[in-house]
Amino acid sequence: MSTYNFDYLDELEAEAIHILREVAGQFEKPALLFSGGKDSITLVRLAEKAFRPGKFPFPLVHIDTGHNFEETITYRDKMIERIGERLIVGSVQESINQGKVIEQTGKNASRNALQTVTLLDTIAEHQFDACIGGARRDEEKARAKERIFSVRDEFGQWDPKRQRPELWNIYNGKIHKGENVRVFPISNWTELDVWNYIRREKIELPSIYFSHEREVITRNGQLMAASPFLNMDDEDVVFRKQVRFRTVGDMSCTAAVESEATLIDDIIDEISASKISERGARLDDKVSEAAMEDRKKGGYF
């Protein structure tokens, strides 16, 4: 028996590729949910490893809140061109125009919660039976309990008490018409694993992950990018700061962290030393102790 190196990143990678190929094998109309964030960018690389030189057996789907960081959209379009795969965009603005959702008002207004409706509409329109997402179990305590193949009913709801047992490396993707499965190939990765993988694979990322100077305001103790999407008033003082973002979401709910990290090595050092978790910079999780569980039950990613 020959010896070989198979370290933890190789093992996580092999597991994720296996899961992606199970999606290809088990579903009629899968899709990959692409947010422009590092986790979904990692998924794209894993899909390349799973299916090249063939095409992906699924399109990429972006749920566009309309409140994007411009850098994310630029990155997205360039990446789609490079990989030559199909992109479907579900627009929150359109859902608002159609009256399916109503824009929130007030200081903490965000389109984050509205995404769920657009996502479910996009799934229904294209009849997707599986949606691959980049969620990880280390992000949040409700996610720590979610299966890799997570079945949603026709209303997109997750029922944490009725999860299917998931044994060995066998994934049961059987569903009834109208239901769909959310699939999380990087469930077992941590934030640091993702960064180490991006470094190892030399994957390009949107520039907002790296330190840059930007106009910000302080909101609920956190730095928010000043933008037309943020409801600001006279009390909000805009100032310039050297920052970066640890997650990429809607501009109105993604906080920046002060950072000088311009290289991926700097970021890995920063995260290793950090005492704040990644979702700590997400206002959407702060609402209550069960915020994520409630949103997932409602059909959120």
Binding site: R137, A144, K145, N188, L192
Partner: peptide, 9 residues
Amino acid sequence: IDVAYKYFQ
């Protein structure tokens, strides 16, 4: 009630 997965290093 259910299996929770935790990660440390």
